[in-house]
Simulated scan of single mutants.
Amino acid sequence: MASRGGNTDGTQGDTPLLFARVLDGKGGGRPIGWDEIQSWQPGPDGAVLWMHLCRTVPGIYEWLQERFAIPEPTAELLTSDATRPRAFREGNALVATLRGINFNPGAEPEDMVSMQVWSDGTRLVTLRRFPLQTPRDVLAAIDKGAGPPDAGAVVTELTEAMVTRMNQSIVDMNDHIDMLEEEDMDDDPEEMLEKIATIRRNCLGLQRHMGPQHVALEAISRDAPPWFEDHDRREIAETIDRLRRYLDDIDVSKESAVVLMDELRTRALASNERATYMLTIVAGIFLPLSFLTGLLGINVGGMPGVENGHAFWWVAGVCGGIGVLLLAIFKKLKWL
């Protein structure tokens, strides 16, 4: 893994490094290259090395085991596509898989992107496959000197930023539902049903990933190693509360979409029932008339009224009278 120029996926040459900083404990940090990372060791000054890597670069699985003595199952978890959110403690290290909203071009809100985390308190490794904005936001704060001072604070800010960015997608879905509620449901019910179905799929997708993430954050707050300080646990607890509120908002959005869909279907069913009812009334009026005209129209000699030439008018008058009588009966029965 020699270090050369930049690559199309943001890595430095053929190395997995996207960026790295050595935190100074005061909110700032200095850049560090891939070659220097190979020999970096924790010092008495309490500096923390944060590396953000691309996990799809060949050799990263073996490098994690050799450089940090990470057990093989954990290294496989950190570099695999099994990205269901989870977190656990392994000795003095914290291991986690988190997911955030995918804001890459062409992605849907439910297409979430994962980030794996490993840290022993002095070294922090975050890994991703697809571009993720959250680590870049934390990096920008560090470069301004206003970032997290240690590994626990970096993990806390990463999780908080990932959860906070979910809020925009939830707000957008709520706005879409409000707009649909204000629209005339009779204009284009098929298009509206399609929009509602999309919102429901987005809600289910977010809920499918945010539910396990809630459990993962609780595991971090509860089982994190001693270097994860009390104020970090409190921050994680606040993030958990925020995530719980977002989950509640998703439930409300999902239920609102169901109510809208039920109302549309009820209106469509009522419209079909009215059409069927009117067809039944029309059939009820014309059925006896059709029977009478069919009976009188049979080709049999001796039918009354044929000889004098007034048969048509007699039949028309009788049919009209029967029609009026049926209408009166239907009105009396309150069928009309």
Rank of each mutant, 00 (worst) to 15 (best):
G91Y: 08
L296K: 03
E181A: 13
S39H: 14
A93D: 03
E90F: 06
A316V: 14
G91S: 12
V171L: 15
I285R: 00
G301M: 07
V117E: 00
M166V: 03
L327A: 11
V171P: 11
P31C: 13
P42M: 11
F88S: 01
W314T: 08
L193E: 13
A140N: 13
L269Q: 13
L49W: 03
I177Q: 02
T266F: 05
R21S: 03
T74C: 07
S114E: 06
Q207F: 01
D178K: 13
T79P: 04
A107G: 04
T198W: 10
D187N: 08
Q116D: 07
D249T: 10
E110V: 00
G6P: 14
T266C: 05
T276D: 08
P212I: 07
G320I: 14
L217H: 03
A311P: 00
G294A: 11
D143Q: 15
V57A: 04
K332Q: 13
I199N: 00
R67I: 02
L287C: 02
D241F: 13
L98Q: 02
P16K: 03
L243N: 04
G43P: 08
I37M: 09
E181C: 09
G317E: 03
M173E: 02
G284L: 04
L124P: 03
V95N: 01
R165N: 02
P189K: 02
M115Q: 03
T8M: 13
A283T: 12
R84Y: 00
D120M: 04
V95I: 15
M261G: 02
R84K: 05
T11V: 09
A82P: 00
E110A: 05
N272W: 00
G27A: 09
G5A: 15
L217V: 08
V258S: 15
D230I: 00
R30C: 07
N202L: 03
R200T: 14
S3I: 01
D24Q: 03
R267F: 06
I199F: 05
G13M: 08
E108Q: 11
G25S: 12
S39W: 10
K26W: 09
L204E: 06
K332S: 11
S119M: 12
T126W: 07
I142M: 02
G33T: 09
R129I: 00
L260F: 07
V315W: 05
F88I: 01
Y246V: 01
L53T: 02
R55Y: 11
E181R: 15
V252E: 14
E182Q: 12
W314I: 12
S119W: 12
R165G: 00
N92P: 01
L124C: 10
S290H: 10
P42V: 10
R99G: 01
M210W: 01
R84T: 01
I250V: 15
E194I: 07
V306I: 09
V125N: 06
L53Q: 04
D188P: 04
A75F: 14
